[in-house]
Design a protein around this nucleic acid. Structure first.
Lengths: 324, 324
DNA sequence: CTTCCAACG
DNA sequence: CGTTTGAAG
């Protein structure tokens, strides 16, 4: 396994008194600094269990070489992410397809640097119909897709720029930024309606062509998928409702969680860390970003990676290798 | 005079095509970049008339040495201004009294650096009753004032943290952040009510003790007091109504504009430049900050300075020397 | 252009 | 904590 307990490197001061143990039932929040104290996803204390991704495996189970590299990243503000050199990382990674979530950028305000990506010529963007600077997704591809559509075909769910569907020869790629259930779960009910509609939409797609679903699905599936499962059962991203929604998605479409399929026991493997309380340095995180695959694509699955070191957002990118 | 036409220093590129001549009647705004284009106070083209403050004169007309140094600065956000090293400049200037406007900071959020000013121990702050991060003034003094009050004694005008009155042995100091008439002059009517109430308040004070009024009075009095008088007659800060209000203030209290008294012909002498369009580099500015004095203080007036070089805000500080 | 806010995450 | 508006200047 690649979950290793590492000694503290003393990079940032970590006070001992707000240490948190996994058994802690309902930890009280540490005294908020001065601000009104937005309720956090969790109390974050000391933690040093790190995860190290194994080397990329570029062959399928049957030994065929990978022919397609897809990368997905919730950039938490495309413009800020570009200023923080996110595109430099992308050029290094050199995916054939790049999916971006939470771009928070209407098409007219896209930075010109995006036109300087010779390897990702075909670009598709979706953003909310009214809410400026909220949500938004993008799909960039080296090759031209056969067909591209936006949304999931339901008025109620297609106002916020959350889904792009790109059909290719051998598969359909769906990238999604699933609605957050919100602080205080104010949007959990809506999220459940979304989950159902999204599941049906994907089931329909999957009936026609093999499916790759990627993006920020805004749920940690099992306890292993976040650092503090106990303290987060009532928080957005780890409610029973959202977890069950994810389970039904896997079963009904059906789809496979590629990372968990390849690494069933990998712990401390996360793709999101709140900016607050030094969570990333302590690896107090969540696995919210996924590549889910139709069963028929499993023979083509070479690897499913978490690029924890890439910075520029509160999420890190994930990368999929397929031999098609 | 200290108004000198200086050759362009080529510090910033200034395009020739958007040059503006003083005779231009109603210049059209240059095409806004991409934003919806907030209506600017003026069209700003090329301009290179600079102003250089003469050396400080530290003796009164009768030859008495200056004994009091007062500095006033609209800091446009105290916290940002401190980050930009505004306090370093203050320590260098070393005034006996420092008046700050547009602090945009409630007392509970004042940065701790303010406690590290041994020369300005006595500190008084006023901020709006409800609007967080708006308006606000401060008065810091080396010596303890005999008495300090806030506002002008009228409910309607005392909700926005705009006035502090500090009584000293020989004079009363009033610092003010006068309400802006607003884009589209949406608040001009209110401003006129303010002007009247403020004038009456000051008249009452002046009857008891000599007065020093300083701060951002949010008006350029005469055409000489801004770079583009022609284009700004309908803009906040240079409407006939505001200019007349200033005139009445001088006449009715009565008060003297110390800078203009000493330098009746000094042109291109400004204390504010919009952040937009490189106005400061081109010295396209306004004189909005003043020291106004009771007549009885004129024999004590040594100098009234404009510290154009001090940065950290869209206003620069001004400094008064008195021999008391 | 730049400050601060609120909303959202 | 950090990104985005939006209001205000």
């Amino acid at each position: 396994f690649w979950a290793t307990r590492m000694p503290k490197r003393g990079k940032k001061e970590v006070s001992v008194k707000d240490g948190l143990s996994e058994e802690e039932p309902e930890t009280k929040e540490p005294k908020p600094k001065k601000t009104k104290g937005a309720k956090e996803k969790e109390a974050i204390g000391e933690a040093s269990a790190m995860y190290e991704d194994p080397p990329d495996k570029q062959t399928s189970p049957s030994g065929k070489p990978s022919t397609l590299k897809i990368c997905s990243w919730n950039v938490d503000g495309l413009r800020a992410w570009i200023k923080k050199k996110g595109l430099d990382w992308v050029k290094e990674e050199a995916p054939d397809i790049l999916c971006l979530q939470e771009t928070k950028c209407s098409e007219s305000k896209l930075p010109p640097e995006l036109q300087d990506l010779p390897g990702l010529t075909y670009q598709y963007w979706s953003s909310p119909t009214d809410k400026e600077g909220y949500s938004g997704v993008g799909l960039l591809s080296r090759q031209r897709p056969l067909n591209v559509t936006f949304g999931i075909g339901e008025e109620e769910h297609d106002q916020e720029g959350r889904v792009i569907v790109a059909e290719f020869e051998a598969f359909v790629l769906v990238t999604a930024y699933v609605p957050n259930a919100g602080r205080g779960l104010v949007r959990l009910e809506y999220r459940q309606r979304w989950d159902e509609a999204f599941r049906k939409f994907l089931k329909g797609l999957n009936a026609k062509k093999p499916l790759v679903l990627c993006g920020d699905l805004n749920v940690a599936h099992e306890e292993i998928d976040l650092r503090n499962p106990k303290g987060n059962k009532k928080n957005a991203g780890f409610t029973p409702q959202e977890r069950q929604g994810f389970g039904e998605l896997l079963q009904a479409v059906p789809l496979t969680d590629s990372f968990r399929h390849l690494y069933p026991e990998a712990a401390y493997a996360y793709t999101f860390w709140t900016y607050m309380m030094n969570a990333r340095a302590k690896n107090v995180g969540w696995r919210l970003d996924y590549f889910l695959l139709s069963q028929s694509l499993l023979p083509a699955l070479c690897d499913s990676k978490i690029r924890s070191k890439a910075t520029g957002s509160d999420h890190c990118p994930i990368t999929l290798f397929l031999a098609l």
